[in-house]
Design a protein around this nucleic acid. Structure first.
Lengths: 223, 223
DNA sequence: GATAGCTAAATTATCGATAAAACGAGATGG
DNA sequence: CCATCTCGTTTTATCGATAATTTAGCTATC
């Protein structure tokens, strides 16, 4: 496993938000394993910022739920027990199912167009093996989709749980086959948006979550 | 309306968490109206702490969702549009209904005992008109109840939405009659925990939310 | 050989001061 | 009379330094 010290980024100017995003990416791509210690000094050295921003970034990561802090002891990348994974996914399924049910169908053309554009970009990234792009367009696709439910607070909570499940989803990023399946799901979702059956759409949104969850739980149980 | 400057607390030593709690209480009791500006200097003067802690308290309040911050402009107590209230309550209902459905029935005796104790304390505070106690035992009652669902993440989200609806619930704290109704609801919930029908319990938990929501929406629409 | 106590190193928490940004009042020009 | 432009005031953001806490390694003692 790569350590934090091996990664350096000299060129870019960082603020606390961009640091948080960079570390978030490190986690989804498995460069930063759950349980890894995150000291202020390492961040300081890696991002060339003042202690103030390093601290702030850690606080930010804590509220995003991807890091846990203990008083006077610093932060570690959150590691999830299978029990916690199950809990997180139970809530995720609940939220996403309801969001899907609340989307007025058939969806307006602009939404379909926007999602189709994201979908195509996602597909290009998958084929090119450009994981960062895959991750970004994937998240944007889902947030755009669920935003159509009209409840911004629900969408915010969905976003929170997407972040909480980051380490779980990291596994599935590695295989192009699972990315293709995911991509196909997205296509189906767009199709469903043109129809009138919220329940089928909702079921699809829930099913879409299963592969990465199952893969993770299987992985943990055999290690 | 009282302003922030009129409230002072000399005796107590404060850290950022206790400041956050104190302000949270000010909001639920209507001492701090939504939209009120929260400058660092006023907190500084009121709590006799260094700027560092005042800042941290504001950050804390922001992540708790009861304050909104704008860059370079400071924080204001979050004010909710009727639309937002509706959204928040829709999610709250969703979460609490599901939590109720997930509670294994009949509930174990220890849980019943714990809730009964809280219920009695709540009742005493209602009759004594001790609002702080009412609020505290009320929240503790619900968190204890929902914790029985076994999903700590769901409970955390419920807690978040309870905080988001703080200004809404503030209204209902003022009338002893509505507090008594709420108290009676709690008694019914305990009864339901002894039975086997999750759906009735869930419905009760949802109905329990309606009075303060309706009261608030009615209040806003006529002002 | 184990253990309690003691330092030194590492790390986080706190502080006071300064910089930067937003705001508002009054002046200036059209 | 209105718009716009200083410029001082208020308020937030950032910084570097210091204090407090934890950790681990060492030593003395039983």
């Amino acid at each position: 496993m790569q350590t934090l010290n091996d990664i350096s980024e000299d060129e870019i100017e960082h603020d606390d938000l961009s640091i948080a995003r960079a570390l978030e990416e490190d986690i989804i791509f498995g460069r930063l394993a759950p349980g890894t210690r995150l000291t202020e000094d390492t961040l300081l050295a890696r991002f060339h910022v003042t202690r103030h921003f390093a601290r702030q970034a850690i606080v930010q990561l804590e509220t995003m739920g991807i890091v846990v802090r203990e008083r006077n002891k610093g932060a570690t990348v959150r590691s999830l027990t299978p029990r916690q994974v199950q809990e997180i996914y139970d809530v995720r399924e609940l939220l996403q199912r309801q969001a899907a049910l609340w989307i007025p169908l058939p969806a307006p053309d602009e939404l379909i167009a926007e999602l189709t554009a994201l979908h195509e970009e996602h597909g290009r990234h998958v084929e090119a093996g450009y994981l960062r792009g895959v991750h970004e367009t994937n998240d944007k696709f889902h947030l755009t989709l669920f935003s159509a439910c009209g409840n911004s607070h629900l969408v915010q909570s969905i976003e929170l749980y997407m972040r909480l499940s980051l380490p779980v989803r990291a596994n599935s990023m590695s295989s192009k086959e699972s990315l293709r399946i995911s991509h196909e799901h997205h296509r189906l979702m767009i199709e469903m948006l043109k129809g009138r059956d919220n329940w089928v759409l909702a079921q699809l949104c829930v099913d879409h979550l299963q592969p990465s969850k199952k893969r993770y739980l299987a992985y943990v149980s055999e290690h």
